[in-house]
Write a protein that binds this DNA or RNA. Sequence first.
DNA 1: CTAATATTGTGAAGTATTTCACAATCAAAA
DNA 2: TTTTGATTGTGAAATACTTCACAATATTAG
Lengths: 209, 209
Amino acid sequence: MSNKKKIAESAISRLSLYLRILEDMVEEGEPTVSSQTMASQSGTTAAQVRKDLSLFGSFGRRGLGYSSTDLVSRIRQILGLNRRWKIAVIGMGRIGSALVEHKGFFDRGFDIVALFDTSDFKVGSNVHGLKVHHVNDMRALVQDKNIEIVVLTVPVEAVTDVTDLINDSGVRGILNWTPARLAVSQSIEVKNVNMVMELEALSFKLSQS
Amino acid sequence: MSNKKKIAESAISRLSLYLRILEDMVEEGEPTVSSQTMASQSGTTAAQVRKDLSLFGSFGRRGLGYSSTDLVSRIRQILGLNRRWKIAVIGMGRIGSALVEHKGFFDRGFDIVALFDTSDFKVGSNVHGLKVHHVNDMRALVQDKNIEIVVLTVPVEAVTDVTDLINDSGVRGILNWTPARLAVSQSIEVKNVNMVMELEALSFKLSQS
DNA sequence: CTAATATTGTGAAGTATTTCACAATCAAAA
DNA sequence: TTTTGATTGTGAAATACTTCACAATATTAG
Ligand SMILES: NC(=O)c1ccc[n+]([C@@H]2O[C@H](COP(=O)([O-])OP(=O)(O)OC[C@H]3O[C@@H](n4cnc5c(N)ncnc54)[C@H](O)[C@@H]3O)[C@@H](O)[C@H]2O)c1
Ligand SMILES: NC(=O)c1ccc[n+]([C@@H]2O[C@H](COP(=O)([O-])OP(=O)(O)OC[C@H]3O[C@@H](n4cnc5c(N)ncnc54)[C@H](O)[C@@H]3O)[C@@H](O)[C@H]2O)c1
């Protein structure tokens, strides 16, 4: 797929929201849905919904709205969810193992297929039916299993070491849970999940009022 | 504090980043820091850093840069971190209990002072030295302990019930881990941590190239 | 004291994103 | 068939955010 126009990050987040709403609609048997409905359920405006969708094509029917099932598959297509993604979790501590046991990822197209750690206690053990490998074997397993995304849940002290291994592994995307900013090669996409930052944003808002 | 001008969400996120960078600088004994240094470490531009800070005042010295220690306390002040926040965690499952054991929150000014669940197995038990209360006692405990923020880690099916209890409790902010959009009273601030949405954004980016 | 160098603070310019507003289109009712 | 009512798709306008560019300051060297 060629990368033509630049799509705002915010538009992509909203598409994720719309997708969840639409899936609920389909489940409830609603055949069509209007931009207004999607807007009120996702906390935006009808014009914003239509503009977001129009970045990718004309999916609705004037006077009628959008076919729920059709729009679900359109958005899945847009987001690259018309396939499954293989992911690995690096760092089998408290957060890492909580994630592995969570079925929400599988349900939405992400298969956890490998786990990594360095601790002698953890390497070789099983977590939720998956064997924990040593992080030094990452390159081999990433290549072998076609892993494209890793979730990083190691202590912040380990980040530099692990980043080198990731850079070298062929992985294309990282979901980073550590508070560190990762030094990865340009071609690797990074998304950060930073709870403390979210709490600080709450702190700011609450201090304002 | 009166809420004068509107500050962009993105500016607040960046202030969190700058704060972390500056704290590292202080630790390393750097007395001053330039906007350029902060910019390169946080992945933005020097002009952006200066503009962000200038939204709140003039903290630097021309020709010299910013005093690291001074700027740390300025930003802490801006973000409302010149005090400690009392928080509760609702839902002592896999994620909830991982969060309780994490010292990163305490380190940055957030004290977890109460835990809630509904399960008979969990209510009454201890997690990391804190007793787990029944969620029905939330209002009383929130009032009693002056809890202002709750972290929500309950199953999505429980969200409606718990949201009612939260609305009624006097809590001012929520860090929502569930994939649901919360129906809370206007006066409550909500921040969402949505991993699946982040994975979907990765999926989109990786599908583009 | 003057010159050279560094770096802030901030209007103005440039981009990006959101909202507006309305012609185009469709279904259903008259 | 015509009218009414609903709702999309999209340029244009409005807003929001980022980057530019430079005067104002500060330090240091000569
Ligand atoms: N626990 C939380 O609530 C929480 C919240 C937000 C962010 N985080 C961040 O997530 C990360 C993990 O947190 P946690 O609480 O799960 O920590 P943890 O200490 O429970 O787990 C870390 C795991 O990483 C493993 N590890 C250490 N070095 C490694 C290496 N080089 N390669 C692979 N694995 C390695 C350890 O053996 C351990 O199993 C930390 O960076 C933390 O700041 C945690
Ligand atoms: N585990 C993950 O990796 C992960 C990742 C992202 C988001 N989430 C979301 O976080 C939430 C929690 O996930 P989890 O894996 O920790 O689930 P979990 O099932 O392990 O834990 C949920 C806990 O909530 C308690 N609970 C149920 N109803 C309650 C109520 N009405 N009031 C208070 N407590 C109640 C349960 O007793 C249980 O202890 C879910 O919404 C999930 O979608 C989880």
